[in-house]
Design a protein around this nucleic acid. Structure first.
Lengths: 324, 324
DNA sequence: CTGAAAGCGCTTACAG
DNA sequence: CTGAAAGCGCTTACAG
């Protein structure tokens, strides 16, 4: 079934059919009877316009590319879900690709998206490389936004584009405040080596809030992890009454080691990201819930806005990430 | 940059360019110099063929639709990852949609995929409805495979199509055998109300293996959960030395209740699906790892095969799911 | 070995 | 109020 057959069945020309079916019958002042007949016949025959031909003509594909640095864990899954739910009901559909943390794949996938003529892209970018040497050799920023409307979500990238980020710094602050309110006197934060702006923001927020509250340097332990936990790190951790993990995986890893040398059941613990079954831990563990779905919703909302407003200056939105 | 401009730059016709660039220069016996010149100019100008025009002509979009019943948790995320990794390097790209467990959305998303002219689809279908009444009213099977090559993954659907399923029954058996090998004498299985074939397969495998090994009926407790755990259920569970959960969420839910009335640290536990941080539980817990990635890989492999072999009879593959 | 021409299914000035 | 015609960018018999 194509537009030509419809037009023959209706006894009108293809352009009339096209105009009516694209909802612009009124605009072209096509008579109501003609319009109705066209609608009815289209419905009866189960006509569906050809997406490819339509897009070829209009230059719009109604698809949004989503490129994600990592595999789909619950965090990225949440972002995707948020994007999808915001897009549902609009004319847009989502095309997803993940990059397995490889800059080459990221580049390729972005290319693919452009090749598919997506109307816009949402990118959760790779973390910048740890080693400067690596950086010089391999890293390339995602495409600049002049090719296509672009929103960066969840992690900074070296592109001028709209951004939707987590409120990492305030999250760190709020954890520190909770710990102090619970009466803790010595603190630790466990983080990855500091190349990732998200982790670093949380750490800074945490440490700054403590300092501002008058906690002395020697009561704050900072562990910037590179590989698996070392004995020296575990020893430093022992003195803390409260530990903040910039993410839950990392915290759990340390706890596994720590519990061998110390009773951890009275320790105050907090980290970013829920842990399923954590009720069984028997620990004073308060996870910060990742608002990943909300990140996705906001990113999609912003992208659609950007598509409508190509010229406007870049915007930055922050989604808050608080205890509870 | 389009094919016409290239042809003008090369001083040949558009069809010659098209033939060379589609890699069929030899076939049409186009001279090597011409071909080389075309390749060079195309590369120099950064020419990329127009995907939409190409697809409109060939009827192939090189895209695979993936429709998932639920949001992207780590299970479905794994499937998606498997599909994607198998597709990477081929000419195919993946379009994903999730359905939030709604039959209406599922139908709509499948429509969308057909509208987008996907070359094939992989569906993780909705669970069949629990109530027969609901069934009659709302449930509609995914599209039959005559519209487009189709692979059903992870859960049975009432369609005649290629399938990639988990080895649920053998998994249940292997858990039972492990429990018996560990010397347990009384057993329980916790499952959802039995509408889901996957859960039911696991339960049957478990129970059958016990029976075959001579375990009497009264030493096997079966709890088919509907809502939150009830007191009566917890009481029945107390007698068991080993508990098998058809999925880990469910098991954890019961353990939460059970631990209030009983020391669970010597209980043998097993369930399907890893739990992050489970090392901190201090329980005899052995999860069965979901081979979700493998499911995806296999589904993609099968779909590509099906695209090449439209007429062949339906195939069924089972991915094994064993302890460790 | 290569090209002119028709066609994929739709849209959109332009003309009436 | 409606249609003939050109065009989107590519492919592919057909003819030479």
């Amino acid at each position: 079934m194509n537009i030509k057959e419809i037009s023959e069945l209706c006894g009108v020309s293809t352009c009339t059919v096209s105009r009516v079916l694209s909802g612009r019958g009124k605009e072209y002042r096509i008579s109501d009877k003609t319009a109705e007949r066209i609608f009815r016949i289209a419905a009866d025959t189960g006509y569906r316009p050809n997406y490819l031909a339509h897009s070829l003509n209009t230059g719009k594909t109604n698809s949004i590319g989503v490129v994600l640095a990592n595999r789909l864990d619950s965090y990225l899954g949440g972002i995707v879900e948020g994007i999808e739910s915001h897009l549902r009901g609009t004319e847009y559909q989502m095309v997803v690709a993940t990059c397995d943390n490889s800059p080459d794949i990221e580049k390729e996938e972005v290319e693919q998206m452009l090749y598919r003529h997506v109307d816009g892209m949402i990118i959760y970018p790779l973390a910048p490389p740890r080693e400067p040497a690596e950086a010089a050799m391999k890293y390339e920023a995602p495409p600049t936004s002049d090719e296509v409307p672009l929103v960066i979500v969840g992690r900074k990238a070296s592109v001028e584009a709209d951004e939707v980020m987590l409120g990492d710094y305030p999250a760190g602050q709020s954890v520190a405040q909770n710990f102090m309110a619970a009466g803790c006197r010595t603190f630790a934060v466990v983080t990855r080596a500091r190349h990732c702006s998200s982790d670093y923001g949380r750490e800074r927020g945490f440490v700054d809030a403590l300092r501002e509250a008058g906690v002395e340097q020697e009561r704050i332990t900072i562990i910037a992890n590179r590989e698996t936990p070392s004995e020296e790190e575990i020893n430093r951790l022992k003195t803390a009454e409260a530990i903040f993990g910039v993410n839950s995986f990392l915290l759990l890893e340390y706890l596994e080691w720590l519990r061998r040398t110390k009773d951890i059941s009275r320790l105050r613990l907090s980290s970013v990201g829920e842990v399923e079954g954590s009720e069984l831990f028997d620990l004073l563990f308060e996870p910060l819930i990742m608002p990943s779905r909300q990140l996705g919703v906001e990113a999609a909302r912003m992208l659609l806005w950007r598509i409508e407003n190509p010229g406007a200056p870049c915007r930055h939105t922050e989604i808050s990430l608080l205890v509870q």
